[in-house]
Nucleic acid binder design. Structure first.
Length: 563
DNA sequence: ACACGGCGC
DNA sequence: TATCCGCGCCGTGTA
């Protein structure tokens, strides 16, 4: 969304590529062809569904081309995504990295072309001859890699996931990024000023309690005050010194007023710097909206990630946090609609484990945490107290994360022995879940990887490690990844179906955000009554599991109103 | 520029 | 021996 088109490189035969310089502003850039003419020539080819296209990070090219009036079609292979499916835990899937791995060769580093850091220039400042070498290599290697990676994908059983899910999803994401979301900058500026004055007040109070001024944002300086000056007990250490994290400060708050003040200060400072002040800077001058980037090749589990800004970690729980969501608004005459999968990972656990008790609970549409409370505390559903339900909820989520008795006890604030009793009781009632976890661990140890419903794969090289904590970490991943990853599979397919329906029905509704189990739309008021059932049905009917998928959907003027 | 501590989901 | 999965971003401190 922020890029200009400087040149195009193309290849249709390995070891042969062409560079078309278009927008170089550099003394040696003569005889460039006019951009509109070049696009006019290429447009019929790029838009032809029958001409197969291969690229590296195609979503980027798709958006740049779309912004120049070209609708890229016939996408056959994105080498970045091919590499990701073959090994999602690889650190990065840029061209240099995958060319090194699969073609055993090095490539011209982009930084060598444009320079490093502050001295870096934009690509249009590069002499076309030099740009040609870089860009042609890029096109050539991408084509070569596709010839290598596509058969590999097929051999390893990723063809359906690649062709039917990840490749179509790329375009859905491109459209979603281009749609962007409208931000109420005025509201954020007001909020910023309010927080500013609250921070100043808290600062005064903190300096009073500390007996001196210091940089509250510095954990190092804070450590000196808390542990050297005030002699509070050291609860935890980091590599570099005293830990002052939320867990430590919460414990210390029982014996001194300062730690709680610090926590409250940090809370507000985080909100201000990460969201309130950061979001307005990312509003695009041409669209007046914020356009995040969805990364399709980052997570080990198959989830998406979001950056610039990360729209997937906007606060929701706390009161002040919801004020940030109020700033995510719709255009006049439009509304925000949000649809989220309810308890999707536990439902997937029920499906994958075939546990009859868990499946029955979901088929009867019971309150799953109350049901778990009823099972482990051995009381009828109507006798479940709020505190029993709260504990059962922690246990339910702990199961998904492959927790230990210690971890559960930390979460519950109880003794590990008590936590162990709860876990034992859970598995006694949900025997199918216990068997399922045992079987998945055995399979992971034997095969060296785990899979999701759509055969996404995550390798776990340390699953048989003799180092106990390292092995246990892998075991938790072995439990969690199929659940989190299957949820990712499901919502990805739903996104593709919904985008298809929107276009088929010629609707104006726009998909604007995805937050792991939630999809957010901007809907013209007059389309709302038609759209809500479409979204709801597509999401619930996306896959036929042995338990129902449940979606709740709400609309309102901003993102805070729809939860 | 990078590592780290810390923290939002 | 550490203890619940998966991320991205902020400010500090240091090189």
């Amino acid at each position: 969304m922020w890029a200009d088109l400087v040149g195009i490189s193309l290849s249709q035969t390995p070891y042969q590529a062409f560079y078309i310089p278009l927008g170089h502003r550099q003394p040696n850039a003569f005889d460039q062809l006019p951009l509109p003419w070049v696009l006019e020539q290429l447009k019929p080819l790029l838009e032809d569904e029958e001409l197969k296209k291969v690229g590296q990070n195609i979503k980027y090219d798709w958006i740049v081309l779309k912004r120049h009036g070209v609708h890229l079609r016939g996408i056959h292979c994105d080498t970045m995504i091919a590499s990701y499916l073959l090994n999602p835990t690889k650190h990065n899937h840029n061209l240099g990295e995958i060319a090194r791995e699969y073609l055993d060769r090095s490539v011209i580093d982009y930084k060598e072309v444009v320079g490093m850091g502050g001295k870096a220039v934009t690509f249009d400042q590069i002499e076309p001859e030099k740009a040609k070498d870089y860009s042609c290599e890029d096109a050539d290697l991408t084509l070569q890699l596709s010839h290598l990676l596509l058969p590999r994908l097929k051999e390893e059983g990723f063809k359906d996931l690649f062709d039917q899910v990840e490749t179509p999803l790329t375009i859905v994401l491109a459209k979603m990024e281009m749609n962007g979301v409208k931000i109420d900058i005025g509201l954020l500026r007001e909020f910023s000023k309010e927080i500013e004055s609250q921070l100043l007040q808290k600062m005064e109070r903190i300096y009073g309690l500390a007996g001196e001024t210091f940089n509250i944002n510095s954990s190092q300086q804070l450590g000196k005050i808390l542990f050297d000056k005030l002699k509070l007990p050291v609860i935890k250490k980091t590599k570099t010194g005293y830990s002052t994290d939320v867990e430590v400060l919460t414990k210390l708050s029982l014996q001194h007023e300062l730690p709680m003040e610090i926590l409250s200060y940090r809370n507000l400072a985080k909100l201000k710097s990460t969201y309130v002040d950061a979001l307005p800077k990312l509003v695009h001058p041409k669209t007046g909206r914020v356009h995040t980037s969805y990364n399709q090749t980052v997570t080990a589990t198959g989830r998406l990630s979001s950056s610039d800004p990360n729209l997937q970690n906007i606060p929701i729980r706390a009161e002040e946090g919801s004020r940030i969501r109020q700033a995510f608004i719709s255009e006049k005459g439009w509304v925000i609609a949000s649809a989220d999968y309810s308890q999707i990972e536990l439902r997937i656990l029920a499906h994958l484990s075939k546990d009859e008790t868990l499946r029955e609970a979901f088929r009867k549409n019971e309150d799953i945490h109350a049901r778990t409370a009823s099972e482990i505390f051995d009381v009828p559903m109507e006798k479940v107290t709020p505190s029993m339900r709260r504990e059962a909820k922690v246990i339910n989520f702990g199961i998904i994360y492959g927790m230990s008795a210690y971890g559960l006890s930390q979460q519950l604030g109880s003794e590990p022995k008590i936590a162990q009793v709860y876990i034992d009781e859970y598995f006694r009632k949900y025997t199918g879940v216990q068997t399922y976890i045992q079987k998945s661990l055995e399979e992971a140890k034997q095969k060296g990887y785990v899979t999701t419903l759509l055969n996404r794969r995550r390798y776990l090289p340390d699953i048989n490690s003799p180092n106990i904590p390292i092995r246990q970490a892998s075991e938790r991943m072995a439990v969690n990844t199929p659940l989190q990853g299957t949820a990712a599979d499901i919502i990805k397919v739903a996104m593709i179906h919904i985008q298809d329906r929107l276009e088929e029905l010629s609707l104006s509704t726009k998909m604007i955000m995805q937050v792991h189990d939630e999809l957010v739309f901007e809907v013209p008021e007059e389309e709302l009554s038609k759209m809500l059932p479409v979204i709801h049905n597509e999401m619930e009917a996306v896959m036929d599991l042995s338990v129902p998928l449940k979606v709740s959907i709400h609309s309102g003027k901003n993102w805070a109103e729809v939860h």
